[in-house]
Design a protein around this nucleic acid. Structure first.
Length: 410
RNA sequence: GGGUGGGUACCGAAGCGGUCAAACGGGGCAGACUGUAAAUCUGCUGGCACAUGCCUUCGGAGGUUCGAAUCCUCCCCCACCCA
């Protein structure tokens, strides 16, 4: 830990750090910190707090994780803070009222899966993982009151989210005011030099600066990364909205999801999800602008690049081929879910669809049939009373994406 | 503690005694088209039966009525204003 590290020249570091960053506040302070670290051979403590409530990491998370990775690559110390304590209290964003507070144990467990998924992007050296219950859990009420005295209600209401909700008459729990402060205490506890976050974290990160100073520390520099919109192209990518690409999504799924983003997002995904080099992004942008490339092909390229990033070249090729086959040529994919059935039995199509989860209810199954969404062995079935006698293998297709093969057992 | 306005389907939001499974928008699903699971357009979107029909749903529990999301009573929850 105490060995002297060496770093690239500061200017070079700054170029990398600035890449894709939305905001660095204050930038001169970062330069000073980097210079000092360079001279003394001491890495900066770069903090990223994470909320383990939803254990599925997605491409939205990857944006800021990638930035952290860059710091690691430069030789700095990444500190991943698992917010097990904060998760235990509940969710601060006010968005998901359904999110139940977790037990410490549960929060820890999810923190573990969070870490496992984060290590898809992070390297394992230059990495420290800490749980914030370690210090937050030890604070006495007295200490908490002292902490809250450092901030005012008016200051809290400066946060856009709070201001908006207050104005709209949406409840704000008192404990939510404690979140930025708790997060700030994390910075104090680990003596953060830099804290990363999405632009929506701006306020919280800034509170960290103030509080660190109150506790006699040099304030951290904050670096925010742009938020990546989800598949709908409208809202921020998030699990609760279901508009996300999980880091663990299988290649084909990942590919298809990229293909479903609105055209306007192509470049943004290339930049932030793929983290493609600036020149390549610029190149693609130019091609699109001059209409020298079809947006579909551009998206195809981005989809492939994303799969390549997580699964490698071969998987990328395979996923692309799969998409081409299933959606462009509308053929049947080669590995589809198969169920074996007793041969010779005759079943109603409606029952078949509901039994195998191709439709949620019989009413839905009928609707789908009436809407010409169902085909059996490539033949559209429009009759809701249709039955199938299972003698040969039969492929049922519902909509564009749902397939099922029925295999009569020999 | 007092006052006012609210709680409606996945979400937002109309409805304010029958014509309400509940307008409209979003989301979702499907179809057409296409350059793709983009965009656009069209349709569908509680369940069961599909022929009429039946059952469950409008914060909760009761009640009035031939009939309630709509009226009454009590209760729970939320926001705002005043203390």
């Amino acid at each position: 830990m105490s060995e002297r590290r060496t770093f690239p020249p500061v200017a070079e570091q700054m170029d990398i750090i600035r890449e894709n960053a939305e905001e660095i506040l204050p930038e001169e302070e970062l330069v000073r910190k980097l210079e000092r670290s360079y001279e003394k051979g001491i890495p900066l403590n770069v903090k990223l707090g994470c909320d383990p409530t939803s254990p599925d990491l997605h491409v939205g998370h990857s944006v800021v994780l990638t930035k952290l990775r860059q710091f690691q690559d430069l030789g700095h110390q990444a500190i991943l803070i698992i917010g097990d304590f904060t998760a235990m209290i509940g969710d601060p964003s006010g968005r998901s009222k359904t999110r139940p507070p977790l037990s410490l144990e549960e929060a820890r467990k999810r923190g573990q899966t969070y870490y496992e998924q984060a290590s898809i992007i992070l390297r394992s050296d230059h990495l420290r993982i800490v749980y914030n219950s370690e210090w937050l859990g030890k604070m006495t009420f007295d200490e908490v009151i002292r902490l809250t005295a450092h901030y005012t209600v008016a200051q809290m209401l400066e946060r856009e989210d709070f201001a908006k909700r207050y104005k709209a008459g949406v409840p704000i729990g008192l404990h939510e005011f404690l979140y930025p402060l708790a997060q700030a205490m994390d910075s104090v506890a680990i003596r953060a030099d830099v804290e990363l976050g999405g632009t929506d974290q701006r306020f919280n990160l800034l509170v960290g600066r103030t509080i660190q100073e109150k506790y006699g520390q040099e304030p951290q520099v904050i670096l925010t990364m742009p938020l990546l919109e989800g598949l709908d192209g409208r809202e921020k990518m998030s699990k609760s909205l279901g508009n996300y690409i999980a880091l663990t999504d299988p290649p084909e799924e990942m590919f298809g999801k990229v293909m479903s983003i609105p055209d306007e997002l192509i470049l943004k995904y290339y930049r932030l999800a793929v983290f493609a080099p600036a020149e390549q992004v610029a190149h693609l942008e130019k091609q699109l602008k001059e209409q020298r490339i079809n947006p579909r092909d551009a998206k195809f390229q981005v989809a492939k690049a994303l799969v390549r990033r997580y699964y490698g070249e071969e998987a990328a090729e395979a996923a692309a081929a799969h998409f081409e086959r299933v959606f462009v040529k509308k053929a049947i994919p080669d590995d589809i879910p198969t169920v074996t059935v007793a041969p010779g039995t005759t079943v109603g199509l409606v029952e078949l669809l509901t039994q195998h989860q191709l439709a949620a209810s019989k009413s839905e199954a009928r609707r789908l049939i009436q809407q010409r969404a169902v085909s059996v062995d490539g033949e559209k079935i429009v009759d809701i009373h249709a039955t199938i006698t299972l003698e040969h293998p039969v492929v049922i297709k519902v909509g564009k994406r749902r397939f099922l093969k029925l295999q009569p057992s020999a």
